[in-house]
């Protein structure tokens, strides 16, 4: 596996992870035993139809929800063993989240949104303002730092969200359908940005998607079907099949 950084290190490891949602008397088994490991520096895409358990898996990897059974390890630390303070630290420092619906705080300006994780991390005002502006510059929105999300286009909002995900220099970036609400060109910009982060900084990118454009840049693709891993493909093998699809 050609990945920058530590080759053998598992950033994320899932062991027999299941998740059952209870809706009234119904039980829906969203994940039916997932075993999987993600290497440091990898660009990984989780593909699958809607309702396949993709987003549930995403939430498990990001320590945003508790599995019904099984274990999730982030940097070989069992997430279930962490207390609230350690969990918050993990979400703040180690993982950057990007969502399909952007999830910016609507009442805050772009710069306030980007600096929020750094405020949580305990940085002082000079530090977080400087880094916040730098990150907005990186995503090309430095002049719009005073704008509220409602005054920005979808693509711009997602770029603010990317800047926010980068705030505490996380080792992992989790992106849940980051291009789902964007047009083709803006979607491609976001994908390029993520790929740059992966190659230039060795950040592990894990993205749930059903955007074919994502496949071209991914190192590995995990296909999810009915709460199970259907198959795992390396990019090398995939290029052929994607080539056929795209002519």
């Amino acid at each position: 596996m050609e990945t920058p950084g530590d080759h053998d290190h598992n950033v994320v490891r899932l062991s027999e992870v299941t998740k059952i949602f209870r809706m009234g008397n119904n039980e829906v088994e969203a994940l039916k035993g997932i075993n999987f490991a993600i290497k440091a520096g990898e660009y990984l895409s989780i593909m699958g139809p809607s309702g396949s358990g993709k987003s549930t898996l995403f939430n498990m990897i990001g320590a945003l929800d508790k599995p019904t059974s099984g274990r999730v390890f982030i940097d070989e630390v069992d997430v279930a063993q962490l207390d609230a303070y350690e969990l918050a630290w993990l979400r703040c420092r180690k993982i950057g989240y990007i969502f399909q619906t952007f999830n910016l705080i609507t009442v805050m300006t772009a710069i306030e949104n980007v600096t929020l994780p750094m405020i949580f991390a305990g940085l002082n005002r000079d530090e977080y303002m400087a880094k916040g502006m730098e990150l907005l510059k990186l995503v090309g929105l430095a002049e719009r730092f005073q704008h509220k999300p409602s005054e920005l286009s979808g693509g711009q909002q997602q770029r603010v969200a990317v800047a926010r995900a980068l705030a505490n220099s996380p080792a992992i970036i989790l992106a849940d359908e980051p291009t789902g609400n964007l047009d083709l060109i803006t979607g491609e910009e976001i994908i390029t940005l993520l790929k740059e982060l992966s190659t230039e900084r060795g950040v592990t990118i894990i993205s749930a998607t059903h955007d074919i454009k994502m496949l071209n840049v991914s190192d590995r693709i995990v296909w999810i079907r009915d709460g199970r891993i259907d198959r795992v493909e390396e990019r090398r093998d995939l290029k052929i099949s994607v080539g056929e699809v795209k002519k």
Binding site: H9, D75, E86, A88, W89, C92, R93, F120, G122
Partner: peptide, 9 residues
């Protein structure tokens, strides 16, 4: 890449 998890302030 480190294996320790610290506590949030």
């Amino acid at each position: 890449v480190s294996k320790s998890v610290e506590r949030q302030v």
